[in-house]
Design a binder for these strands. Sequence first.
DNA 1: AATATTGTGTTAAACGTTTACTTTTGTGTT
DNA 2: AACACAAAAGTAAACGTTTAACACAATATT
Lengths: 332, 332
Amino acid sequence: MITIHDVAKMAGTSTATVSHVINGTRFVSDELQKKVKEAMKELNYKPNMMARGLKGGSMKTIGVIVPDCTNTFFSEISRAIDRCCFAKGYNIILCNTDNDIKQQSSYCDMLISKMVDGVIMISSDNSDDDINKLTEASIPVVIADRTVNHKGVDNIIVNNEKGGYDATKYLISLGYTKIACIGGPTFISSSNQRIEGYRKALKESGIEINEDYISHGDFHFAGGNKSVSDYMNLKDRPEAVFATNDMMALGFIDGLKSLKMEVPKDVSVIGFDDVQLARITTPKLTTIAQPLNELAQKATDLILNKVEKTDLNISQIVLDPILVERDSCRKK
Amino acid sequence: MITIHDVAKMAGTSTATVSHVINGTRFVSDELQKKVKEAMKELNYKPNMMARGLKGGSMKTIGVIVPDCTNTFFSEISRAIDRCCFAKGYNIILCNTDNDIKQQSSYCDMLISKMVDGVIMISSDNSDDDINKLTEASIPVVIADRTVNHKGVDNIIVNNEKGGYDATKYLISLGYTKIACIGGPTFISSSNQRIEGYRKALKESGIEINEDYISHGDFHFAGGNKSVSDYMNLKDRPEAVFATNDMMALGFIDGLKSLKMEVPKDVSVIGFDDVQLARITTPKLTTIAQPLNELAQKATDLILNKVEKTDLNISQIVLDPILVERDSCRKK
DNA sequence: AATATTGTGTTAAACGTTTACTTTTGTGTT
DNA sequence: AACACAAAAGTAAACGTTTAACACAATATT
């Protein structure tokens, strides 16, 4: 292994000077600079990040905690975060928690042990235990996509309530009044907020809220699929459905198909997320798009600002989602 | 930050003893063991992996290089690898190369700098430059999913040629003789091998190979979609299509739909990969399944065996893909 | 002319572990 | 009682960086 000592020796100078050349932390004469750079190239020297990190520097690594990167929504976020990090010389350690608090906590311990520079977290835990653990180890944290009970930490989410509201209003504008809502797991804040928006829109339009119309799935294709039977058994069956995420919307549509029901002819369905899949299936899914790239970009900016101490203020950013009209809804 | 010194002081012993307690590398009396463990708990001590790594130990981190984790196939592999690594106390650094050699090389440099314990690589480079870089830095490498021109390195792939052969034979068994093939980018070995299998099956069944039937897409939905127009313009239009991956198959089916062509009524389509999506779309896609979990599991085993030096032999594993019959093909 | 300042480099200590080497204590053998 | 040997634990050097403290000219200021 080639070390900074080897470079120093070859360039006929000290390790300090080599270090300063590498980091631009002090003036070094042109002549010496050249010698050092030549030696580095000649020896194919690569700084050892561990040593650098140990000495109080940075390993240039960001922890990214998601529930499951197999879910397109999260894979797209991870991808965008990696892109932003790579551009600034950072790598990401990807952690899949399966929405399991135990696993999430365990991953946090590992990230602390590895002294990552910062953590972007889509938390599966409503409590702030993990956040506290990280900040106590003086690792900056950015909470993305989901809210958590914690004040002192950067936070970037999309306005889920507005999204739910817009989705429902859209359905109402199409002429529907009997509108069902398929929520996600009750412990996921974003799902609950979307349902809030749904309620608000109905109330505002003077439509009475039928609690039977509100069900809860698992945020996966399977959950949407399963909820079809509940839906079919409903007394006064709704003609439009707001699913709080795309995967459930698609599962629901698929379940409908096997019962020979057609979307949007028999039921209008709107989703939430605008996952890549939404553009692919038949019918193409009308949905509320989350500004994914913006979310990832801003989350990365926030964390790197903290890491590099360029901006230590705490930001609470909320992004607005956007209605994307495709083929799964039509006028009543 | 709590260090091993703090623990030693609180337990009234030396750092050496604490280290031995942690790693089980030397006998320590029960009494002392207890004191040390209590001190660790009391102080909430977490070993600093950087220091450990610097001293010649391991950071317990594996680099995972994929073209793009947004592609379900790769996200499923990354997920499975993370699961296996986590179970053994390792984390993964995820790297997305976009099939770009430059980026891949750059990621490798970073991984070397960070002295990861090993690298699992789905390489976008047919040359072995990156592999050599890594092995010269004495980082073990496992090549997964795609082959690369390099002997001295672990390799785990699925039998792509057999997969292509099986897909084509299946179509033939359904009564088709005019069978098109949508290949992937020509620089991706797995695609070429699948096409080889296609050729072999035709030849074996005495069906003449029509080169016009073989086209090349980009391995994405869009590419499959685009290839529809070429297909429609074919003189003697095939009644069955083998797409060398699922995303192109789905794109192709979607393109067909907008021309009011039905699958499998008008055309039978078979894919390759068995991406989650394949079970979801209508029609559900008949495809050649890659044994993803097995691939990930074995790849992780291989790399960890090298890292922990339990098995230094070089393995060349080839897994057999499996035909999954669903709804996108039917008898002629 | 004596002193302060600036410009360029070097030396060596630190970061938190692991581990080869050393020390201390206890036990058994002559 | 003297010695050998084993068992248990401690000391300190090393890993590859960064950086505070220092050194030494050369120049500027009094």
